[in-house]
Write a protein that binds this DNA or RNA. Structure first.
Lengths: 198, 198
DNA sequence: ACCTGAACACCGTTCAAGT
DNA sequence: ACCTGAACACCGTTCAAGT
């Protein structure tokens, strides 16, 4: 006799995300998720192919929210302000859910990965911003400079790799400001010794 | 009757490192290391406290080599050349042993961590370089800008997060050049709008 | 003094059997 | 049609017993 499902994919993903954030990736076991959802571990496989699939779904949820947030951070009076706003939004996002952020950029088996379109959606606002800062011909390189710095800074911060004291907020602002000038140099304003100026 | 040890800490760490690089962190099991070293898993615990300790020892070995390499990359005619050389050395190091590199900066239980002094030894050349580029008063912020960018770039590259095509080597050079100018701006050369210049 | 098999407490995953 | 216990193949780790 058919019995109604006692849980759902949505509940499983949401619960998985909460466990991930509270206990870290190692704490995200199928048994833990099952228990929290009121079911035994084997039942999860009715909704999810395997643990890798669950992780993939969590990653996709988080990446979607990140893309939304990056998009929303644009639209200020100047590109420099957009950069500052986007950087702050990015950092805040990572701080609000450090485990999920880490997971998104971690050593990732293919099966954990987010769909390429989702990655492109998150990349788009960064590309747009980089183009307005450094000119369209440097949009991709510029976006990679911004993304590498922001991701590296936040990752090292979360991993507690910055161990020499000092003010991390100030270091972050320093980065934003110098990147701003670095990207704008060569775009309109000619700088001594910058061969790429035009 | 006392029997001679059939393996050694050195052999265990070296073997562990080889397995890590070949099979990834998940492949680095105590059983695998034991088998490769010609012993059963429980015997490893004569030399190593637990798996976390083995990982810590591998991390320390790698971090030591990285520190050596960063130190050796300095000493060119100009700070800009030093930055380019150090960045290339860093990236080459990561490419030569991607799994070990990832592990060093990964979500790390306290017990995996490298000793603070080792981290400081690796940081020292970067600080020295940043001071010569941006002036001593911006050494720490500058070093963090460089380190965040380099680590972010290499991590994203290794994680295959740069998925929009283009030339990654060129993107890396772009980063080096723009960071160079960004750090030097405000140091000696006054730049319009840079209030920190003196 | 080192090494081992056996055991324990965990995993993820499969599957036949219940309802 | 969903859920379950039991089972399988793995882990890391401990420990008493071998040599």
């Amino acid at each position: 006799m058919p019995t109604p499902a006692r849980t759902s994919l949505g509940e499983i993903v949401q619960t998985g995300r909460r466990i991930l954030e509270a206990e870290g990736l190692d704490g995200l076991t199928m048994q833990r998720v099952a228990a929290e959802v009121g079911v035994r571990a084997p039942s999860l496989y009715k909704h999810v192919r395997d643990r890798a699939h669950l992780i993939h779904l969590i990653n996709s949820t988080v990446a979607g929210e990140l893309a939304d947030m990056l998009e929303a951070s644009l639209g200020h009076a100047s590109p420099a302000e957009d950069l500052a706003a986007m950087a702050d939004a990015y950092r805040g996002f990572a701080h609000a859910q450090p485990e999920a952020y880490r997971l998104m950029f971690a050593r990732a088996p293919e099966s954990w990965r987010v769909e390429p379109e989702l990655g492109e959606r998150a990349a788009a606002p960064v590309l747009r911003l980089a183009a307005s800062l450094a000119g369209p011909e440097h949009a991709l390189d510029g976006a990679r400079l911004i993304a590498a710095w922001a991701n590296g800074f936040v990752s090292m911060e979360l991993a507690d790799t910055f161990r020499l004291g000092g003010d991390l907020d100030a270091a972050f602002r320093f980065g934003v400001e110098r990147l701003s000038t670095a990207l704008v140099a060569g775009h309109g304003i000619a700088t001594p010794g910058d061969g790429a100026a035009h």
